[in-house]
Amino acid sequence: MSKVQESAGPVLAHLARLRAGKVEVHVKAMGSAPALRQPRFTIDGSKKFSKLIVYLKEALKLETIYVYCNDAFEPSPDERLSDLQKCFGSSGNKLNISYSGEQAFN
């Protein structure tokens, strides 16, 4: 939507500031998916959602995983965790995440 023709420096610096800090992720298993030993943890807000998907896959040893935000939708893997937390997070820096081995919430 936007086109910046010169000196992107201040814009990129502002983006970095917006996304600085940690996001507190609260994770919940759905259906027959295994539970995570530590369902609350923090991740760098500048990281992409794909980072969380990969982490959950590895920690749970699942080949296929569907990861949802607010029990409603799957964020795109290239979305930033901080952007998601600011749009969809609840009190504090909390982001509510649920996952399943099968597709849910259609």
Partner: peptide, 13 residues
């Protein structure tokens, strides 16, 4: 967000 010599950034807000 597009700027020369930089990969596009997308901000959801």
């Amino acid at each position: 967000i597009w700027a020369p010599a930089h990969d596009g950034e997308v901000l959801l807000h």
